[in-house]
């Protein structure tokens, strides 16, 4: 992670580890990936798994207004004041990578409104394989793909698959039905990613998100150490 620099001078820059009042800010984890791979479902499951021990908030970056935020609200994974939607002008990748100003306002507003927070999950709207989060916005990023999107996605690579701090291959329960070869996906991912971790999930059961939740806990331990 890239959190060992604190900006000097008056400007609050996204990557600053300290808030303007000197306190340490929440860990920010970004979740990206193609449309329909289960990003919002993963965020919802993470909130359920972690909310009893941690103070969590979520920022969504939707293509159309605030539908992902609305899903999280409907499913009551967090109180509404802990969920903020950023509007992206039809370009979520711009809002999470090229112009992160609206997302930075959102994470700061959440810390001001419901803080202190331990963890802020920043979810990108479904986009393409090249969409990654700016290091000015998040401390670590998760890229979520699924077996139904084609088992050749890990082989194809792209910045999301190759560089994300965690690659999640979701919907493993569907593998037999769509003819996806999980071993092949694991091998291809390892070839693309070297030492970077890959987990396989199926969110049909309550514990399905456990590998991701464990990884998040490890990131938090490193952040607060």
């Amino acid at each position: 992670m890239h959190l060992d620099h604190t900006h000097q001078g008056p400007a609050a820059v996204g990557a600053d580890a300290a808030r303007p009042d000197g306190t340490r800010r929440a860990l920010r984890i970004g979740l990206g990936g193609p449309v329909g791979s289960g990003k919002t479902a993963t965020v919802a499951a993470l909130c359920r798994a972690l909310r009893d021990r941690l103070s969590i908030a979520v920022v969504t970056n939707d293509i159309y207004t605030r539908e992902d935020a609305a899903f999280l609200l409907r499913n009551a994974v967090l109180p509404p004041e802990r969920i903020q939607a950023v509007e992206t002008g039809a370009c979520p990748h711009t809002a999470i990578r090229d112009d992160i100003s609206a997302n930075l306002e959102a994470v700061e507003d959440l810390e001001d409104a419901v803080g202190p927070l331990d963890l802020i999950l920043v979810e990108s709207g479904g986009d393409n394989l090249t969409a990654t989060f700016s290091k000015g916005l998040v401390d670590a990023q998760v890229f979520v793909i699924d077996v139904a999107g084609g088992d050749d996605i890990p082989r194809k690579g792209g910045p999301g698959v190759t560089t994300a701090d965690l690659l999640v291959v979701n919907k493993t329960d569907l593998a037999p039905y769509v003819g996806s070869d999980l071993d092949r996906m694991a091998r291809d991912a390892a070839a693309q990613r070297g030492e970077l971790p890959v987990v396989f999930t199926s969110l049909t059961s309550a514990e399905g998100v456990a590998p991701v939740a464990d990884w998040v806990r490890a990131q938090l331990a490193a952040w607060t150490a």
Partner: peptide
Amino acid sequence: GRFPAGGHAHSG
């Protein structure tokens, strides 16, 4: 237009 100040999300 790439100056990161949020304009991309607005249609005026």
